[in-house]
């Protein structure tokens, strides 16, 4: 059985600034990282592999330089890494992205049965949380989102039981396999690669699948296949803060004033 993890290369958003003139992200010189949630998706696929001897594949759609992200996955120990890269895939929204990823998984499924697809709950650049569910719908897989624990995998009955982390409560959900699971950070702690894994990963090849391989209708992918687009990015105006008292000369007085203000605004109760 195959376990697939979908991972994305994202700009390190803590280092991204917005160009005030064009309202676009300034990406020049900003390092790329693996979407943090995806590292947990990848780790969980490896844990299932270690436990059930599944085979693991990491998938990523992106420009050629997204290979670095897949190489990181190889460092972590994934068996195979496939980059979905084609100019025709560029400019995709979440719908077109999930179309391409679903097609790739379907292709893998033809060779070996895909049991579970892991995705991060969302990416830190787009923050839509739509691609994972999009993949599930296109493949007809069970859809389990916001999972923070895999409770049980029953391969005989082809069932999986997971815990979903929702606001203020947990939900134990059982579903049939194959399933698409989006994960939260609490699910696991990603492993740290050994030097031998790093060296092996540096020597391994990352397969590249273009649309020639997937053979998708060009009107369903990339910019053409995207019914939504970002029209503007901007930072909301923030109210300027104010200095309360003089903390250097009279810290106790300043603290008292701050406390009174917080209580007055109903942010603290005494």
């Amino acid at each position: 059985m195959l376990v697939v993890s979908c991972i994305k290369q994202v700009p390190d958003t803590t280092q991204v600034q917005i160009d005030p003139v064009t309202n676009t992200l300034v990406r020049d010189g900003i390092p790329f990282i693996v979407n943090p949630y995806d590292t947990h998706a990848l780790e969980e696929s490896l844990r299932l592999r270690d436990r059930y001897r599944f085979r693991t594949v990491a998938l990523s759609m992106g420009p050629p330089n997204a290979e670095a992200t897949l190489r990181r996955a190889l460092c972590q120990g994934v068996d195979e890494a496939i980059l979905l890269s084609d100019r025709a895939f560029g400019g995709a929204d979440t719908l077109a992205t999930s179309t391409v990823l679903a097609a790739a998984i379907r292709r893998l499924h033809q060779q070996e049965e895909v049991g579970i697809v892991f995705c991060g709950k969302q990416t830190i650049d787009g923050d839509t949380a739509q691609v994972g569910p999009g993949i599930a719908v296109r493949l007809g897989f069970s859809q389990l989102t916001l999972v923070d624990r895999i409770e049980h995998v029953d391969l005989m009955r082809r069932r999986i039981r997971v815990r979903r982390k929702l606001e203020g409560r947990y939900e134990i959900v059982e579903a049939s396999l194959p399933a698409m699971i989006t994960v939260v950070r609490e699910l696991n702690r990603p492993r740290y690669p050994t030097v031998h894994q790093r060296l092996a990963a540096a020597a391994a090849t990352v397969q590249v699948w273009s649309n020639e391989v997937l053979g998708l209708d060009p009107s369903t992918i990339g910019l053409k296949g995207s019914p939504t687009w970002v029209s503007r990015i901007f930072s909301p105006e923030r109210e300027k803060g104010e200095m309360i008292g003089n903390g250097l000369a009279d810290p106790a007085g300043a603290a008292r004033m701050l406390l009174e203000r917080l209580v007055a605004k109903d942010l603290l109760t005494v």
């Binding site: 702690r189 492993r191 740290y192 690669p193 050994t194 030097v195 031998h196």
Partner: peptide, 9 residues
């Protein structure tokens, strides 16, 4: 660290 990735968390 390098052979076993084994270190305090």
């Amino acid at each position: 660290v390098q052979m076993k990735s084994c270190f305090p968390e």
